[in-house]
């Protein structure tokens, strides 16, 4: 077994173990941290495949931004675990049977006889001067420019959807009208009243 294979098996083990731990974690914050570990393992496997750009993006975007946001949300929400687990036992037997059948089928189909190194050899290694990002960029802006633009449309929808669903038109706070404040003149605000001061005789 080559050293590369050993590294692959270690990383895969961590990937699967952290994914399972994420599902079975009782604490939501811990689950997020296990997911982060899973992302790291997946990114490392990508590095083994010479897909450096994807690996770094996964860590920067998902671990750095998305998961941190998740942690914030989980810490801010007060999740009631008892209602979440109320129906768990009820659905467990059926879910377990279905899951076991699917797992058994997948093991039968996706074994090493189908995807092992003998039938699917690993891709040829590139030299040190090979740039993953350049190739990716060339592909994205030529061959895959259409899917790339469509992905941009999906982001546009995300923006529209988020604003549509969250934005409230009625403002509950009072705000200042700056131009009105600047244009105000002394006579609008101050009223001069001439008061005749009493003389000595009147006292």
């Amino acid at each position: 077994m080559s050293s590369e294979q050993i590294i692959f098996y270690i990383l895969s083990f961590w990937f699967i173990a952290s994914s399972l731990a994420m599902i079975f974690a009782r604490n939501a914050a811990k689950a997020v941290l296990f997911l982060v570990l899973g992302f790291f393992s997946a990114a490392s496997i990508w590095i083994l495949l010479e897909a450096e750009f994807l690996a770094i993006t996964l860590i920067l975007v998902y671990v750095g931004a998305v998961m941190v946001l998740f942690l914030f949300v989980i810490k801010m929400l007060n999740i009631d675990k008892s209602t979440m687990r109320a129906k768990f036992a009820e659905y467990l037997p059926l879910g377990l049977i279905v899951a076991l059948i699917i797992i058994a089928e997948m093991i039968l189909v996706l074994g090493s006889a189908q995807f092992g190194l003998e039938v699917m050899p690993s891709p040829a290694r590139h030299g040190a001067d090979y740039s993953n990002i350049t190739v990716l960029a060339m592909q994205l802006y030529t061959t895959y420019v259409y899917p790339f633009e469509l992905a941009a449309v999906i982001l546009l929808i995300a923006i529209i959807a988020a604003i549509t669903l969250v934005h409230k038109k009625e403002t509950t706070h009072k705000k200042q009208n700056v131009s009105e404040q600047v244009n105000v003149r002394a006579k609008d605000r101050v009223r001069l009243v001439s008061i005749v001061s009493p003389t000595k005789e009147e006292k």
């Binding site: 895959y144 469509l150 999906i154 929808i157 995300a158």
Partner: peptide
């Protein structure tokens, strides 16, 4: 995009564009 999609990727992206807009349309009566 879906009716003109001729690769699995574009078909999927078209489907997502459609679905995401529909989810939002339903929730518009929030």
């Amino acid at each position: 995009v879906m009716v003109s999609g001729y690769s699995l990727l574009t078909l999927y992206l078209g489907l997502e564009i459609l679905s995401l807009s529909l989810y939002t349309l339903i929730a518009i009566a929030r």
